[in-house]
Amino acid sequence: MDRESLLVELVDDDGVPTGTATVDDAHRAPGTLHRAFSVLLLDDAGRVLLQQRSAVKTRFALRWGNACCGHPAPGSSPVDSAAVRLREELGLSTVDFSAADLTDAGVYLYRATDAATGRVEHEYDHVLVGHVDAGTPLRPDPAEVAALHWIDLDVLRADLAERPAEYVPWLAGVLSVQAGATHGR
């Protein structure tokens, strides 16, 4: 399946749907604001799972990011769509993980241009947080994921500040939303 030809839901700054476009069209400069999700997976020790995006990604290839990202189909739930992508990208089975295991931490609105490809991320990004056991078997799809790595959250934040070019540009914002949701409880 060509993920670039799938439809995304265009939204305004408040997340109200305004139409649809293909993934490809929404990410062409100057970028069109659309709904997305970013999943942070934490283990019992508070470590976060990072994925290195595959070399064939059209945006920010080979950079480290959160466990999974994607776009819900128009009218679809970001949580349900994320559970599906976790199965597709990381091979998480429904026995190990389901949509019920995800918590919506909030929304992060951002725009970032990939200098290597000229593609633009302009997303109304639902930050979803889940917990999995670090020993849960993962079977990443090599078309999506080059590598996986568990890392302590404080170490990640320090490395992100020191070497931001190694990471996807939305990761710091996603971590901020997660931290705000955690501290707001």
Rank of each mutant, 00 (worst) to 15 (best):
S77V: 02
R35F: 02
D44H: 15
H27V: 06
S38R: 12
S5T: 09
T22K: 12
S76F: 01
L42F: 12
T58M: 05
K57S: 08
T20G: 06
C68D: 05
K57A: 04
A36R: 15
H34Y: 08
D43S: 02
L33G: 05
L7Q: 10
H34W: 10
F60T: 02
G19K: 08
D2L: 11
G75K: 07
R53H: 09
D2C: 06
L7I: 00
H71T: 10
F60A: 07
G31S: 14
L41R: 01
A73V: 00
A45C: 08
V11R: 13
A55G: 09
Q51M: 12
C69F: 05
F60E: 09
L50N: 06
S76L: 02
A26H: 12
L40N: 03
R35A: 13
A55C: 02
P72C: 04
D14V: 02
L42E: 14
G65I: 00
P30H: 00
T18Y: 10
V56E: 10
R53Q: 12
S54G: 08
V56R: 12
V39P: 06
N66D: 03
F60V: 02
T32F: 10
R3G: 01
A45L: 13
L42Q: 12
A67C: 01
G65T: 04
P30D: 00
L50F: 03
D12L: 11
G19S: 02
L62T: 07
L33M: 13
S76K: 09
S5L: 13
F60C: 10
E9H: 06
L10M: 14
R28F: 03
D43C: 01
G31A: 13
V16N: 12
D13T: 10
W64R: 15
T18H: 12
L49S: 00
S54P: 08
L7E: 07
L33F: 01
V8K: 15
A55P: 09
T22H: 09
V23Y: 12
A21T: 02
K57C: 04
Q51E: 11
D25F: 02
D43Y: 01
R53L: 09
L50V: 01
V48P: 09
Q52E: 15
R59S: 06
G65C: 07
R47K: 07
V16L: 11
H27R: 15
C68N: 07
V23R: 15
H34Q: 15
A36G: 14
P17M: 06
R53K: 15
S54W: 05
A36M: 15
D13C: 09
A45E: 14
G31V: 08
G15S: 04
V23K: 14
C68S: 07
V11E: 13
T22S: 13
G19R: 08
D13N: 11
L62P: 11
A26V: 00
V11A: 05
L10I: 07
A61F: 03
A67N: 02
D14N: 13
L42M: 09
S77D: 10
V23N: 11
A36V: 04
F37C: 10
F37W: 10
D25W: 04
R35S: 13
R59H: 12
D12T: 00
A73Q: 07
V23T: 06
L41F: 00
R59M: 06
D43Q: 01
L41T: 00
A26W: 14
D12R: 10
A26R: 03
S5E: 11
